[in-house]
Amino acid sequence: MIRVESLVYGYEDERALDGVTAEFKEGGFVLLLGGNGSGKTTFLRHLNGLLLPDEGNVYVDGVPTDEDDEHARRRVGMTFQDAASQVVAETVEDDIAFGPENLGLERDEIQRRVDEAAEAVGATELLDRSPYELSGGELRRVTLAGVLAMRPDVLALDEPLAGLDYDGERSVVERIVEENEKGTTVVVATHDATPFVEYATRAVVLDDGRVVEDGTPDELFSGGVEEYGVRTPWAYR
């Protein structure tokens, strides 16, 4: 579904990604782990076509993102680490509708998708509210709904639990797992695997823009990954 080959990307004269190769198969639940500055966010932005490779290639359904980045944006839904910065409209309903509007759908279909996505994340009651009035957990769920309304095949989620309390974390994790169970591929970038580790089928560790570990959570965490700035989940301590 997504193939990344020898991806190199730099900000000015600093390399953020240095020859990353990885593959994400349909229906998988992949943890993208690494400390601050390891290249996780830059990598996720390549999956969504927001960034294009300096060298190497990213293929979404076999289509290179540097030839058709719009295809990547339609197929890979991405949420940002800072949920508030992802909001583009004044009400939750308008914000969720933003993606379907960009797909050029008819009004009835947009409304249907907004209602479905809001229901999927438990945000139906929030539709008329301003996104700026929401709690951290509610805002996370709303940004997830904004992406789900586009019906992507892949969810690329950047630190989806940042700043949430336990209830907020649990509620967001449940929604993500539900989407994965429906067949959506999930790629979660995080420095703390604990809330996701029981659902993950694979974990990839980035360090200094390179893939340093790639395997099942059991393989990775039994060996320890803390040297890469990643917290070992409780279950493996």
């Binding site: 339609r74 933003f98 509007e101 960009n102 050029g104």
Partner: peptide, 24 residues
Amino acid sequence: RRADTLALAMESRGYDSDRSSLRS
């Protein structure tokens, strides 16, 4: 920076000026 992030947020959800609308 905020303008840049807003543009990124719009782009990440496939922003296209020739788009439909929920409202009329």
